[in-house]
Simulated assay, not measured.
Amino acid sequence: MKSAQMRLKILLPYTTFMDKSNVLRIVAETNQGAFGILPNRLDCSAALTAGIFCYQCLNGEEVFIAVDQGVLVKTGFDVLVSVRRAIGHADLSELHALVKKEFLLIDEYEKHVHAMMMKLETGFLHQLSNFKNQ
């Protein structure tokens, strides 16, 4: 008897990173921790955080991919993952270092830029309000 299998598709903003059938299980990371997906799991969706994404193929091979923030949607036997960035073809320790170095540091930089933009906007609105009152 043939076991149920999933089709996994990982999308980046500009291309399809991977399209794989015959996937037996998936492990993904969210803010609440890691969770697994098997073929007969109920349909679901989850917001992913930067981390290591893992899936196992029919031949038993486990594949690890470093992914940035994104979303995972499972409908039936199809699993669609959409992330900002993904890096594969490296061993697990290299991927973990890449997540820390590239994804998390870039997120901190983006938070800093966002805070600076908020200060500029607040200053601009304050000056505009002073100009209007004069």
Rank of each mutant, 00 (worst) to 15 (best):
H89S: 14
S129W: 00
V67D: 02
Y14T: 13
H114S: 10
V83G: 05
N22W: 06
E102S: 08
A34L: 09
L125C: 03
M6R: 02
F35H: 13
V71P: 00
L98D: 09
Q134R: 04
R7G: 03
T75H: 05
A86P: 04
T49L: 15
F17Y: 15
A46W: 10
L80R: 07
M18W: 03
N40C: 00
L104T: 07
N40F: 04
F17L: 10
V79K: 02
Q32C: 11
Y14R: 11
K2Y: 05
Q56D: 00
V113K: 13
S45W: 05
Y55A: 03
L125Y: 08
Y55F: 15
K132P: 00
T15P: 05
D19E: 13
F64Q: 00
I87T: 10
D107K: 13
K9V: 09
S21G: 03
I87F: 09
F17A: 05
E121P: 00
D107H: 13
A50S: 12
A4T: 03
C54I: 10
L80A: 10
A34H: 11
Q134N: 05
H96T: 11
I52R: 04
Y109Q: 12
F103M: 12
H112L: 14
A97N: 12
H114G: 08
L128M: 10
I10S: 12
S3W: 00
Q5A: 04
N22I: 03
V99L: 06
K9Q: 08
E121Q: 08
S45Q: 06
T16Q: 07
D19R: 04
D91Y: 07
V23Q: 05
E94N: 10
Y14N: 14
I10E: 07
Y55G: 02
R7E: 07
F131M: 15
L128G: 01
Y109K: 11
P39Y: 04
Q69D: 11
P39T: 04
I52V: 11
